[in-house]
C-alpha cells in the first residue's frame, strides 16, 4: 500500500482509459482514427489497456492520402497483424478518382485538405457515431478549447460557439441521427507526455521518427522529404540530410527537422530543449492565425 505511486503518466493513462471505455459504453458504432503517428499509436496501446483480454469494441480507421511515408504503412500493417484487430482504410485516391475532390496544383499542393472529404465519406459509409482521435489540446490554441467529447454535425463541422459544457469526468455522448462525436482521450497530454509514455511502455514507432539520412529540399524555410508527391522544379535543390520527423502526416505537408536523435532518450532530450513547437513543422497551420480553427469547423480531425 505504501508503495502505491500514481504519477502523472499513470493519471493521464487512467483518464484516457476511462474515456475509451465511455466511448465503448455510450456508442453503437465507434471507430478509432489511426494515422500511423505516435499519438494514434499511443491510443492503440491505451485501447489494449482498456479492453484486453477482450477485443476492441471498434475498428481502426486509416484515412490514407496515398502520399504516406512507406514506413508508416509498413508499421500500420505489422501492428494490425500483431493486435489482431480490424482495419478499415478510407482512400483519398479513391475520392479523387470518383471526382469527389480535386487534386491541388502548384508548388505547395498537398492532399492534407482532401482527407476531410474521405474521412466524412468513410464515417457516413460505415455509420460511425463516434470517432476517437489522438488530438491534444497543447498542439494549437483552437484545440485548447475543444471538448474531450466534441460534437460534429452532419457535415462534420465543429461549432466552437455551441460546445457543450463538460463537467467533472462525465461525458455526454447523446447525439442526433447524422451527427457524430469526435473523442480525444489524450486531450490533456503534451507532446512530451506522449514521448515519456512511449518510452515507459516501450512502444515501437515507425522508423521515420528517429534520425535517418534522407534526400530533402527546402521549402518556405522548412525541410521537406524529396518525393514524387512533392511538385518539384528546377529551383529545388536536393540535399542529403540527417533528419527525423516530429509528426507523421502526408509527405507533402510534413516537414523534417535536422536531428541526430537515434534513440528515444535523444528525442526526449531534443524536445525538452527544443524551441520550435511540434505543429511548427506543419505547413498546413501556417496559412493564417485561425488556420486550425477554420479547418476544424470544416470537419478536419
Amino acid at each position: 500500500m505504501s508503495t502505491y505511486n500514481f504519477d502523472y503518466l499513470d493519471e493521464l493513462e487512467a483518464e484516457a482509459i476511462h474515456i475509451l471505455r465511455e466511448v465503448a459504453g455510450q456508442f453503437e458504432k465507434p471507430a478509432l482514427l489511426f494515422s500511423g503517428g505516435k499519438d494514434s499509436i499511443t491510443l492503440v496501446r491505451l485501447a489494449e489497456k482498456a479492453f484486453r483480454p477482450g477485443k476492441f469494441p471498434f475498428p481502426l480507421v486509416h484515412i490514407d492520402t496515398g502520399h504516406n511515408f512507406e514506413e508508416t504503412i509498413t508499421y500500420r500493417d505489422q501492428m494490425v497483424e500483431r493486435i489482431g484487430e480490424k482495419l478499415i482504410i478510407g482512400s483519398v485516391q479513391e475520392s479523387i478518382d470518383q471526382g469527389k475532390v480535386v487534386e491541388q496544383t502548384g508548388k505547395n499542393a498537398s492532399r492534407n485538405a482532401l482527407q476531410t472529404v474521405t474521412l466524412l465519406d468513410t464515417i457516413a459509409k460505415y455509420g460511425f457515431d463516434a470517432c476517437i482521435g489522438g488530438a491534444r489540446r497543447d498542439e494549437e490554441k483552437a484545440r485548447a478549447k475543444e471538448r474531450i467529447f466534441s460534437v460534429r454535425d452532419e457535415f462534420g463541422q465543429w461549432d466552437p460557439k455551441r460546445q457543450r459544457p463538460e463537467l467533472w469526468n462525465i461525458y455526454n455522448g447523446k447525439i442526433h441521427k447524422g451527427e457524430n462525436i469526435r473523442v480525444f482521450p489524450i486531450s490533456n497530454w503534451t507532446e512530451l507526455d506522449v514521448w515519456n509514455y512511449i518510452r515507459r511502455e516501450k512502444i515501437d514507432l515507425p522508423s521515420i521518427y528517429f534520425s535517418h539520412e534522407r534526400d530533402c529540399i527546402t521549402r518556405n524555410g522548412q525541410l521537406m522529404a524529396a518525393s514524387p508527391f512533392l511538385n518539384m522544379d528546377d529551383e529545388d535543390v536536393i540535399e542529403r540530410k540527417q533528419v527525423r520527423f516530429r509528426t507523421v502526416g502526408d509527405m507533402s505537408c510534413t516537414a523534417a527537422v535536422e536531428s541526430d536523435a537515434f534513440l528515444i532518450d535523444d528525442i526526449i532530450a531534443e524536445i525538452s530543449a527544443s524551441k520550435i513547437s511540434e505543429r511548427g513543422a506543419r505547413m498546413d497551420d501556417k496559412v493564417s492565425e485561425a488556420a486550425m480553427e477554420d479547418r476544424k469547423k470544416g470537419g478536419y480531425f
Binding site: K141, A142, A144, K145, P160, N188, A290, E293
Partner: peptide
Amino acid sequence: TDGLRAEREQGITIDVAYKY
C-alpha cells in the same frame, strides 16, 4: 490564451481554454 477567433477580435475569453 485567447484561442478562438471571436475572442481574439473582442479581446475577451469566452470559453474554457486548457493550457499545459
